[in-house]
Computed example of a mutant assay.
Amino acid sequence: MTRAVLSIGSNMGDRLAHLRSAVAGFAPELVAVSPVYETAPWGVTDQDDFLNAVLIVEGPPGPWDWLRRGQELENASGRVRTLRWGPRTLDVDVVSVDDVRSDDPSLLLPHPGAHERATVLVPWLDVDPDAVLPGHGRVADLVAALDLTGVERRDDLSLS
């Protein structure tokens, strides 16, 4: 059994429906689903705001299986990869899988940059207050060090 943290996000089309499709796609293995957050884009800032959430899943799949399933859901949502950090219908990132470390360019674990991204850490902290990001420490400590400008919890939106 593996336990994985998956970050999901969308800023194109029906953003909430895209996030719900990811929740449905991982439903058999879901342990927790965070609240939805609206966040300002980073990297390429000339785009619409994102809706983001975190899923915690457990099951027999290994790291590569979580990645493959996430990519299948992205493809099903019509995601087209044209611009790094650009707009997307659905983004599913494997943030961590147990304490697995991977330097494979196709699946870097833990996800690079996760330790400084409010889009990942804030919703993760909501569903796992004791969470630890391998190699970086307690998620609560990482969140405390972040500028949370542009991060808004959307209690009016639900993924269930």
Rank of each mutant, 00 (worst) to 15 (best):
E72T: 12
L73K: 04
L73H: 01
L73I: 00
E74Q: 09
E74I: 05
S77G: 09
G78D: 03
V80I: 14
V80H: 12
T82Y: 10
L83P: 04
R84F: 10
W85E: 03
W85V: 02
G86Q: 08
P87E: 13
R88I: 01
L90V: 02
L90I: 01
V92C: 03
D93G: 05
D93H: 09
V94F: 06
V94Y: 09
V94E: 09
S96N: 11
V97Q: 06
D98I: 05
D98R: 11
D99H: 14
D99F: 05
R101P: 11
D103I: 06
D103V: 13
D104F: 02
D104G: 10
L107E: 08
L107W: 03
L108D: 01
L109T: 12
G113V: 01
A114P: 10
A114V: 07
E116W: 11
E116K: 14
E116H: 13
E116L: 15
A118P: 00
T119M: 15
V120Y: 04
V120G: 07
V122R: 03
V122Q: 04
P123H: 11
V127A: 07
V127R: 01
D128A: 15
D128K: 05
P129E: 08
P129Q: 11
P129A: 11
D130T: 14
V132H: 15
P134K: 03
G135E: 10
